[in-house]
Amino acid sequence: MNKQRTHQRKDTAFRYLALACTGLGLLVLALLLYDIFARGSGRLSWDFITHLPSRFPEKAGILTALAGMVSVMVLTMIFAFPVGIATGIYLEEYGTRNRFARILEINIANLAGVPSIIYGILGLEIFVRFCRLGNSILAGALTLALLILPVIVVSTREAIRAVPRSFREGSLAMGATQWQTIWNVVLPSAFGGIITGLILAISRAIGETAPLIVVGALVYVPFIPEGPLDQFTVLPVQIFNWISRPQAGFATNAAAAIIVLLTFTFVLNGIAVYLRHKWYKKVKH
């Protein structure tokens, strides 16, 4: 009887411990967001968004970093989305049984685990030096495209796998070819899931800092890039640069820039969560 009570006490103790762990995680999240808002929200203004960088913290703005970020993201999407989706389709619909597909699968799992800074080194040697693209938007975008490729492949595969087998069989039985089945039946059904994966991938790319530093995203760009071969900086690199400076004014700038960056990340993630929720409901019915 006594033993049972100790067991029950342990059980309750674990519950409190687990709640404490959960609470600590959420507390850190709250503290992080609070601190950034407390420091940065006062600095946030239309001027801050539309000004060029400056040596003086109170004059500096994030216009070039924002412009660089948008250009890099657009190009990254153009490169990574088609290739990632195509690879996902191939692995899920064509090559699930052969040896080549198995090698591809292990390879993609490995790529997903390669630290992002290694992609930076790859981009530096292949795109910046070998292809002579220099420290350009194009080189940065190609590097990020390779980085998010495995993420897109994995999410595309999951979305396609969720399409019931009977859909494909119905289409094939009507005399459609394999590609017609994929294009007209599988992809429309998997669309929501694929889009969710793409949004999450781009949200990850937006926050990446290290690989772009390695391919040479500059810390000081006094102009708005006009073409894909121009030099550039992006918001996270600008933030890193401001954090590294001793003057307190730059820490305030960094906090304000982080608010802008987090807005992008949270909006994208929010859209992804919403779409996934909607899509799952549809698939289930």
Binding site: I36, S203, I206, G207, A210, L261, L262, T265, N269
Partner: peptide
Amino acid sequence: AIPTVVYGFF
């Protein structure tokens, strides 16, 4: 989902 540079700041 928070970018790592933000954690660095924190």
